[in-house]
């Protein structure tokens, strides 16, 4: 293809948008609305996932050892635990430290006067934090297979709840995104059909003069892609501004919440959201227009 033809096709695609401006605006608005919802949904989801991740990391599995296990062996088991992919951290708590942490609050500051010996003797343990709470059962099974380990304590309810929430969120997201995409493709479809009918004479002349299928169809596909791209830029800008405003508002108005909820920085969020939104916009535009010209533009 000649460069001049490429520019001509691109120009015609842009002209199509303006020639058919009300329908183009309607399409852009609808794609913007869909991708805005998608962006909002993604923003909430990403933050929710991040909070879940923090919560998952907060769920610990505690392992205790049989009496008389050598310190070297305990250390060796600790290394094996840390080497596992589902483990984010494994903290060794000696019996003395466990007593020193627990006693002041539960016995009193003078606990050393009351107890001359450490009642937690032999209760050296590891507190293990997970990267993915869904893999807790695998870890527990493995830990229980180690003969030197006497007991494995864990919160099954917390693990199951978090895993369940994760699954529900994933299914709902996929469902909503699929519906939004289908609606957008349908709308692009309609815009291109209207564009084709508006340019009926021009297309007829092109056919008679000897335009190839590609030449006739490509401005409509370009129109669809451009509508998709414009439609994805608007919600990106809106979400950027809105996200910063909402975080500022929550931080100022509800300072207590910020301790519970760690919002993702806007840069982290947009690192994924920008390419995904632009890709979705262009993809929706391409799919909608390409399918339409193939079906309705018999050259």
């Amino acid at each position: 293809m000649r460069i001049s033809t490429l520019f001509y096709t691109l120009k015609q695609g842009i002209i199509n948008i303006f020639r058919n401006k009300w329908f183009s605006l309607a399409s852009i608005a609808t794609i913007s609305a869909c991708l805005f919802l998608f962006g909002l949904f993604y923003t909430v989801l990403a933050n929710f996932q991040s909070m879940l991740k923090s919560a998952e990391e907060g769920v610990a599995v505690t392992v205790f050892f049989e009496e008389g296990v050598a310190a070297e062996r305990i250390q060796e088991i600790g290394e094996q635990i840390r080497a596992r992919s589902e483990v984010s951290r494994a903290d060794y708590i000696s019996a003395d430290q466990a007593w020193a942490d627990w006693a002041p609050e539960n016995v009193g500051e003078d606990y050393q006067d009351i107890f001359s010996e450490n009642p937690f003797e032999g209760m050296d343990n590891y507190e293990i934090y997970m990267t993915d709470v869904a893999l807790q059962q695998d870890l527990v099974t493995w830990l229980e297979s180690i003969p030197e380990i006497s007991e494995v304590r864990r919160s099954e309810v917390a693990a199951n709840t978090l895993t369940g929430i994760n699954a529900i969120v994933a299914y709902v997201s996929v469902g909503i995104i699929a519906i939004l995409l289908a609606v957008s493709i349908f709308l692009i479809n309609n815009t291109v059909i209207i564009g084709i009918s508006v340019r009926k004479t021009e297309i007829e002349i092109m056919k008679y003069i000897g335009a190839t299928d590609f030449f006739v169809r490509s401005p409509f596909v370009i129109e669809g892609i451009l509508i998709g791209l414009i439609g994805s830029c608007i919600p990106l800008a809106a979400i950027y501004v809105l996200y910063i405003e909402v975080i500022d508002y929550v931080t100022i108005q509800f300072p207590a919440l910020t301790g519970l909820m760690q919002f993702l920085p806007v840069e982290n969020l947009f690192h994924t959201l920008v390419p995904v939104s632009l890709g979705l916009g262009a993809g929706i535009g391409f799919l909608g227009s390409f399918a339409t010209v193939r079906k309705h533009l018999r050259v």
Binding site: R2, S4, T5, M206, I209
Partner: peptide, 11 residues
């Protein structure tokens, strides 16, 4: 010019 563009004549 439209007829020439269609047959991809150089500008």
């Amino acid at each position: 010019a439209f007829a020439q563009r269609i047959v991809q004549t150089p500008t």
